[in-house]
Design a protein around this nucleic acid. Structure first.
Lengths: 221, 221
DNA sequence: TACCGTTATTATCACTCGATATCAAGAGGG
DNA sequence: CCCTCTTGATATCGAGTGATAATAACGGTA
């Protein structure tokens, strides 16, 4: 055999800088999502993409910098997935248009949570205790969406379209209900014997969430 | 100073076996909830209760045995908190009584999630990947509640009391929506500037969840 | 072909981890 | 008091961690 067991490379191959950087980012998301910041090892992140552990400190400044870069990358994907769902200024939109946009945003967020469970897994890992990482991710990435959802919800609520629920509480109801089966996908497979990545599950899940939060806007009514 | 910095004991004190076991169990829950199994260190668990790390291997067989014992303890508390909320045989109860019991169970579960965020934190940490620990906790502790909730929900749904949502999906909507603000309490404080352990938050949260899942049974209607 | 900047690879550092062996000190019985 | 069983306390082991220094080999350019 031409290589040692588990050795990333015996025959030296060289990759373009952007290739290996992106490969390391994606690998880091999987590991950070599954194990948290401290639990993820840089050796495991590198091994997934057939790289060596010191390459992380070469292409990124540190494990912490890799974490931040991978989180930036992930929220970039989220931004693309949600782009245009909520109107920039809810006050100027018609309420029915706003409600339809809110329902559409829910469906898109559920799909994203299913395709990228790492996002909510990382949030859960970071958000159990105050830290510099939590402060950064909250202010840099979470707050814009939190504010937009809160504003839209309060507009709909005051117009009588939805239940009289505090917008802070609504945000956590929504995020928790949308992400739980994908964050704990391994449990779903054991408990329900179903794969939550199945498009049928994702679709039913999204419609259920729309049905309970925006009764009357469900696709099936 | 009479003791080294961070040293649990300089002057030797002896505690009853049951006392230190229970102290270690509670400390373990906090650490396992915040950091997961691998992330929690036995030294930190011991230090919280002014004990030494080897005492864990003395009073419990291993870190894994301590984890299992602390999870057993926690689900014991959950069982007490939920005792009697759902009728043993939903088919024999009147549907309106079943619905009231379901709403009551939601309120109790939200309160428990707020008082013991470790439970859902531990589940999230364990449920991201298949493992012996996940299989054990699922079969020993999760499945009974999952089955009871599913049966009650399907009864209510087929009687037209609630939205036509698959019971597997409903379970994860419920668990996620009920636990999220307490699992990520540090984020709530940063983002909303509110403490989710506040009784007012807990009460509003529980009522909101009842309102969207069991419209018409909300305490405020 | 010779060179040089860039990247891959190896080796190693100080540190933390869970577990265990060893010894010291407590408590209760006679 | 002394004996014995139990528990506290210390030291240490091998394994794994992130980071870094040192070296080797690639790829383009002159």
């Amino acid at each position: 055999m031409g290589r040692k067991a588990d050795a990333p490379h015996n025959v030296r191959t060289r990759r373009a800088r952007t290739d290996i950087r992106e490969a390391l980012l994606k690998s880091a998301l999987v590991e950070f999502g599954a194990n948290g910041f401290d639990g993820a090892s840089t050796r495991a992140i590198a091994r997934r993409v057939e790289a060596h552990q010191p390459q992380i400190n070469y292409h990124f400044e540190s494990k912490e910098a890799l974490w931040a870069a991978s989180v930036d990358y992930l929220f970039g994907l989220l931004g693309e997935a949600l782009d245009g769902a909520l109107p920039a200024d809810p006050a100027q939109a018609s309420t029915s248009h706003l409600a339809a946009g809110f329902a559409d945003g829910i469906r898109r967020f559920v799909r994203f949570a299913a395709e990228h469970p790492e996002l909510n897994q990382i949030m859960v890992h970071e958000a159990t205790a105050a830290s510099n990482r939590l402060t950064w991710i909250t202010e840099a990435h979470i707050r814009p969406g939190f504010d937009a959802i809160g504003l839209a919800w309060r507009t709909l609520r005051d117009a009588g379209w939805v239940a009289p629920i505090d917008s802070d509480i609504l945000y956590y109801l929504l995020v928790g209900a949308a992400s739980q089966p994908y964050v704990t996908a391994a449990e779903v497979r054991l408990l329900a014997g179903r794969d939550p990545r199945d498009p049928e599950w994702i679709d039913s899940h999204a419609e259920a969430l729309v049905a309970i939060l925006l009764p009357g806007l469900s696709r099936n009514e």
